[in-house]
Design a protein around this nucleic acid. Sequence first.
DNA 1: CAAAAGTCTACTATTACTATAGACTTTATA
DNA 2: TATAAAGTCTATAGTAATAGTAGACTTTTG
Lengths: 150, 150
Amino acid sequence: MRLSKRGEYGLRAMIMLAGPSKDGSSPAMVQIKEIAEREKISAKFLEQILLTLKNAGLLHSKMGLGGGYYLARSASEITLGQIFRVLDGPVAPIKCVSQMAYEPCGCPDEQTCGLRLAMGDVRNAIADILDKTSLADVIKRQDAVRKKLK
Amino acid sequence: MRLSKRGEYGLRAMIMLAGPSKDGSSPAMVQIKEIAEREKISAKFLEQILLTLKNAGLLHSKMGLGGGYYLARSASEITLGQIFRVLDGPVAPIKCVSQMAYEPCGCPDEQTCGLRLAMGDVRNAIADILDKTSLADVIKRQDAVRKKLK
DNA sequence: CAAAAGTCTACTATTACTATAGACTTTATA
DNA sequence: TATAAAGTCTATAGTAATAGTAGACTTTTG
């Protein structure tokens, strides 16, 4: 049940972009290079990831000097599920319970397949969290934890 | 978030072994060959999987003519989580939230890392289902669905 | 025009996955 | 006691996915 590095880096980058920018500007416009440095990721690898996210409509960008990436919508309108699916594909552990990419799994009777029933629960539990957690929620929670620790 | 074929086949086999045997004997003793045929899996591949499960203590076997595999404990004492971990490793999507195989993920501050907090929730949700669902539960549910469909 | 930024495509190395092969051991039973 | 049916164990191989590199190109600002 592994999140790939692409997924991990992409999620980290999106969370960073949802957070407060250094100069307080909004939308936060950040360069690949800076994200890569702050998260210690290969800039070239991150480049691909951000481009994918952009082509999926989750990020916008500005080319040229003073350019960079910024969220395509407000942080409360982008969920972890959307990001995850773009980078790592369907959430379901097995194709026969996937909403996004259903395929029969080859068991004699899908309706009564015990594995399918259990994996359906798992899929729903994961999707429930990922689809209901927005980037804004993540930022809020980080702040709450920081406050608590002080 | 993919279940591997090893995991899938292993879980299917365990569920079959937890179900009623053809002759009503208990514990159900079934041969690799028969499982492979009923589930349409390569017998040689399944062999490796069952051996792994055996070495992990979840299955027992009897060698020689009339032998086969059977559950090491009652179906209510074997959970999907145990099987999953043997075949597919830790449940956690990212190592820094793994109970079984923790490793730092390299973020500046783990305690306040938003990704880690979210993935921790995911890990818990998956583990909650997998560790609380026994093979007996799976069989029970299959039966319930069958009854309902009739 | 130069520098700073993103765009796009191709390539490569490593690892994980999904098997396959074959030689071996154990056990029941004819 | 020979034979066939079963599990045991290790090695290998093909394929696909992952993680990353490289480089040439475009856009924008000053």
